[in-house]
Structure formats: C-alpha cells, structure tokens
C-alpha cells in the first residue's frame, strides 16, 4: 500500500533533477529495485501509470524497472549465496552469521529526457 507514497517521493526527486538539468519532458525513468526491497514492482508500475497522468513533466514517460538480485554473505564460511531461497541461513554451512550484500536497493538509475536547447542558455 505504500507504493503510492513512494511514487510521490520519486516524483519530487525527479522534479529536482529536472530543474537542475533544464528538463522539459521526461521520456523514460529507469529504476534499480532490489529483490528484497519490499517494493511490489507490478503494483508499482500500475501506480506510476495512474500518477504520471497528473504530472505534465512525466505524463508520456515509460517506467523501466531493473531488478537487482539479492545476495547474502556468510561470515562463518566466507561464501555468498542467493538470498531468496535461503534467507538468513547459509546453505553451505548452516550458519546464521550472515548479512545482505545487495538486494535492498531502491534507486533512480537514470532518466531519458528532452532538455531546453543549450544554444539558448548561453553555455555554462
């Protein structure tokens, strides 16, 4: 249910990026979302399609989501393993002395955008 709340924050961050880069229209937004970040990506995309229509800067934009696989490291045996099937318990040695290396991310990777003509900006 908090996907909509996250999208409102995403839009605010995009507004800031747009202002800094003289963006006039956003064509696409690419997010990197970790497998265990808690974001339901299908639902997130639906929320985006609803929200963007109310936001002129991004109303024609496409949301692209790249998934970052969740990987956990085991301190006991020093090996890494896939988090989703095994959780906190190392499948190699059975230890619980483990920590997540990656997979919790929620990052705006890049946007494709039309910007104001640099010729008219007088260069900077």
């Amino acid at each position: 249910m908090h996907e909509m709340g996250i999208i409102i924050h995403l839009a605010k961050t995009l507004d800031k990026v747009a202002e800094e880069n003289r963006v006039t229209r956003i064509g696409s937004v690419t997010l990197s979302i970790g497998e265990v970040s808690g974001i339901v990506t299908d639902y997130f995309s639906e929320c985006w399609d609803y929200f963007k229509k109310k936001h002129p800067l991004m109303e024609e934009s496409v949301l692209k989501i790249e998934t970052i696989p969740a990987v956990t490291h085991c301190d006991a045996c020093g090996r890494d393993y896939s988090t989703i099937p095994h959780g906190k318990t190392c499948p190699h040695c059975g230890s619980g002395e483990t920590w997540l290396i990656q997979g919790n991310e929620c990052i705006i990777k890049q946007i494709e955008a039309e910007t104001a003509d640099p010729e008219e900006q007088g260069g900077d």
Binding site: I6, H9, L10, K12, T13, K16, V17, N21, V23, R25, G27, S28, L31, C106, I107, I108, K109, Q110, I111, E112, A113, E114, T115
Partner: peptide
C-alpha cells in the same frame, strides 16, 4: 522521434524524504 538525452541520476527514490 524525440531527441532524448540520458541523465544519470543514481539517487535513492526516497532521497527527498531522507
């Protein structure tokens, strides 16, 4: 086809909240 430029953002989605 519109002329789009790629802008690297690399910021957390919740950067503004943080």
């Amino acid at each position: 086809m519109k002329d789009y430029k790629v802008i690297e953002v690399k910021e957390s989605i919740l950067a503004d909240n943080d």
